[in-house]
Design a protein around this nucleic acid. Structure first.
Lengths: 231, 231, 231, 231
DNA sequence: TATGAATGAGTCTTCATTCAT
DNA sequence: CATGAATGAAGACTCATTCAT
């Protein structure tokens, strides 16, 4: 995937005005200028609603409150804008907090906390939008699926696998295929995110993802528990 | 959603099966009878691979081995073709077989059989393609999501809810929210279908949906069992 | 203008069946087979209603109750059909009857009869359709305008000019430019034909072409009369 | 019929007229202000020559010296362009001048002046083009016929009817049907306009519309006069 | 002779991208 | 930096014409 293109052309300008003091300015505050972020917001809105092909840059520009030509000052092409937007969205997903959360917990308790953590994820509309976007555009942007897999799914799954294997090792969990089971842990989260974007409005009963995830945690814990081994 | 204009369905099929006596009779009249199905096959291939917008009718025609104009003899528009294709795909999903399968089974056994049934669904490439198509095109074709919900998801979910409630009533299952839990039963099936189409090829470990579903069934049964599932 | 193309392919057939007796059959009954005439009727209907470009052969075929392919058994192309139809329509316009009508009449009486004759022309829907068709398609079929001018307008105008000049010579009419005046004689007929096809339906008062032409004749006669010469 | 989307009318016109001082100022901003009018001019040329259906936007664009896409910046569709063009052409027809001309004249003199006025109309090539366009496209654009009838024909006819009735009332004219006669007054004008566009070039004698209309006026006046028009 | 399925050239229309101002 | 007019390549759709049956 190409880098976000010339996404910060204002950088040079800033440098011109910059007094030495700025040298120490926080590095992480890249693209401080509001424009690119505004455009990316608009892009998320439009691309999510229409899909990549059906979205028009006219609409993105209108949504961002700028002219179509201005888009090209910040992004090389429609494709570059989409990629920048998608990458931007994936940035936020950090494992650190999760690691801190699970640190030192017993497997069962950790699993429980993990499922609780998922509920929060569903509250962030930008993060909820990702799965649908990635799935819908996987034909044209396979890199997105790949990057998301590598940066989001695999690390998360890694933690879950480790957790399950630790549980098996400590005798808390019965013997299961940790790899496949890890996907079962995540599946309801994915489905909840997709459901909300696609089917929710047509369903006669409103869904209650928090309750669903609570049931999920409960079933998981009981389903994995060693004691339950029959036969 | 208008049905496709299937021109003279299969008027000449009989001639095709006819005994040698017919040898002197006119051979078969073009491919007219088979055409709509061939086109829908091609459409599924192309729409699945590219999405509705990015797919071109040129490509569909090439895939079907016909000219662009011929498409319009059978379908009124690109949209009509897509809809016809999607509806065609949903036709096959029948609940009868499932009902027969679950008939008279105890809740736990029925749940087990149901999960086993899911494994078969994943073997039908046309059925596997549906979720992704519906999710990807839900912005442009919300009817698809609605129809799929009403004709596939809701009936299936209904069976599961009934099954869970029966289990609770008979004391086999502990008290859970049957509605939310029913979604948990289905979630891994959906995720497996989407996974195969989107992420599978990038994953370093091949997935094993059959094994996953087996674990799913096991966890579900144990997770729902009333006591700590001893017997 | 190309000849009506192979507009009578059935002719040969007929010849085959024909007994010598037929040799004496009326010559003028060309294209006795019904098909071409039916097609031309349909063509007139559709071309008149839609114009040459907007008319589709599908519609002509449907109107004629035959298949599109059959059209090509009788006419080489859409263009050929249109031309054949237009020529066919012009055939009917014969001056003989008019000449017989005016024979031996005094100029004033002849002019009066001529205007009365125009009223009849307006009763033939096929003849009324011609001016509009010719005018509308004059860009694509300038030959039509030319042929119509030569076979219909010029002869008619010639009679009128002769009539006027005779009137002037005999002292019945005052001295006018016979050529330009001849057009004034015809103008109301043309306008009446066009009016009926184009504006009639939007007008709040129904038009009364017969009355109009009667007034026309009266004004003409009085307007041309010698006695009226003032100064 | 939506009006054309005339983009920023003539914002920069002022700059164009500016004195040399402006020489260093930005030259003029494209042709934006003039564009719609240029396009309509080109459209008139092409639509008149070919008719609506046969005209291609490629040709209109070429005629206007712009690209095909640019057309769509100013007009929503081929249809919209045609309608805008036709409406534009009808704008110019004002009755005011005619009313001023006829004001206070005796019926006979007014009629004479009116016929003289018609001669001027024939000098405006854009106005001459209208009848043919309207007649040729009346099938696809019946509104044009309706609008033309209401905004051009009916008002004009109204004046003529009033004039004739006044003449009858004052004893200058004999008793005629004013409604039908009014059409006789206009007919030669219409025919002259149509003639020039359709038949003129094939006629062996050039037509002389001015002379024709003069004869028309003379015949009309004499034909309507009460007595045998002696004075 | 008659059919109608098939074709593909031709048109309208959209929209990402460029560039003069 | 910002604009928005202009472009032209690409795609959906139509329809005259052909041809196997």
């Amino acid at each position: 995937m190409k880098p976000p293109a010339k996404a910060n052309p204002q950088a040079k300008r800033a440098a011109k005005r910059a007094v030495p003091l700025d040298a120490a300015a926080p590095r992480w505050r890249r693209r401080a200028a509001a424009r690119p972020a505004e455009i990316i917001d608009a892009a998320l809105t439009v691309f999510s609603a229409r899909g990549f092909e059906a979205a028009t840059l006219d609409e993105v520009a209108r949504e961002a409150g700028i002219s179509k030509g201005t888009l090209y000052l910040y992004f090389d092409s429609k494709t570059a804008l989409f990629e920048a937007m998608a990458l931007e969205l994936m940035q936020g997903v950090v494992m650190h907090r999760l690691d801190a959360l699970l640190e030192g917990e017993a497997p069962a308790a950790a699993l429980h906390k993990l499922v609780g953590f998922m509920t929060h994820v569903l509250d962030d509309p930008r993060r909820v939008a990702m799965p649908k976007l990635i799935i819908a555009e996987s034909a044209r942007f396979p890199q997105l699926a790949e990057i998301w897999l590598k940066t989001v799914i695999t690390p998360l799954r890694g933690r879950i696998i480790a957790l399950i294997e630790r549980g098996i090792a400590t005798g808390a969990f019965r013997k299961v295929d940790a790899f496949e089971t890890s996907k079962l842990v995540i599946a309801p989260l994915l489905v909840a995110a997709l459901w909300r974007q696609t089917f929710e409005r047509f369903d006669d009963r409103p869904s209650n993802p928090a309750l669903m995830l609570r049931e999920h945690g409960e079933i998981l814990l009981r389903g994995l528990a060693k004691t339950a081994t029959k036969e």
